[in-house]
Design a binder for these strands. Structure first.
Lengths: 145, 145
DNA sequence: CTTTGTGCAAACGATTTGCAGGATG
DNA sequence: CATCCTGCAAATCGTTTGCACAAAG
């Protein structure tokens, strides 16, 4: 992976034909630096924790732009919440029912479509496995109720 | 499958300890009769097409109740839209990028977890494969642009 | 008769929009 | 210097809530 180099971030933006603005840079850099899968609002809050850097509308618009440029991906695992992920290479997700934490699952873990031809007439562009359950910590807690 | 029998619907509701009201019955019957995966609003509109039968709030509340009772399942494939599905047995989904249509994929099509032990410490409760691409019709349209 | 569901309208949270001013390439 | 981005506040969309009335068991 090895992200976080400012030069690389700027290059990524430029290579997609995007203007490099402080706000857009900040949003993308923040997302690259995080291992969780934050919502737009979480990014907005973290960016402006020290000093105001970016308005709400700008964070939303930056995320849309980044998504259209293919630098960022959305993750939809909960009702009414749209999360974002700077890791665009294909991978799967696990969501803990207890704490809501979302973790990545390596792509190589499953090979679903290689072996199973889908319904005829469907052109497959991508797929993803979503796993739900309890993480280590949450499973331990609910063990002895 | 063979749903749609009013008696069966009433029995399903009762068996989960739910009161059988006309509105709740209508919401569940409508969902059972549909092959698509409608949003709450779509159900609301279809129910009230002929004559007013159920208010918006009641449809939402009925769906919540049915979901808690395990008679209905939510399907999250698009940003900001929560769809519902009366087919609660495990299965996968395909979403067409062109028309947005969602179709079911039989559970037997994939067997992901049987062969792949996940990360240690994770208790798996369920999983689902989400496939994206183009359906027959949409693939044909975009063939010669 | 007690409990639970319904309808309405107002409240709500997340996201989008219109527009004027500002920064980027 | 033309284009695109930002910030603000208002608008919008889907969903939830509070409360009085009505219906189910």
């Amino acid at each position: 992976m090895m992200p976080a180099n400012p030069e690389q971030i700027i290059q990524s933006l430029k290579s997609r034909g995007l203007r490099v603005t402080p706000q857009r840079f900040a949003v993308y850099a923040n997302l690259l630096a995080r291992a969780d899968h934050p919502t737009a609002e979480q990014i907005f809050l973290e960016l402006n924790q020290q000093a105001p850097q970016s308005s709400q509308a700008t964070v939303y618009s930056a995320l849309q732009t980044l998504r259209q440029a293919g630098l960022v991906r959305e993750v939809l695992l909960e009702e009414g919440v749209c999360r974002y992920d700077a890791k665009v290479e294909p991978h799967h997700h696990f969501r803990c029912r207890g704490c809501g934490q979302i973790s990545d699952i390596a792509w190589e873990t499953f090979h679903c479509l290689e072996t199973a031809p889908l319904a005829p007439g469907l052109t497959i562009e991508s797929y993803e496995v979503i796993v739900r359950g309890l993480c280590d910590a949450c499973a331990g807690e609910s063990e002895t109720p």
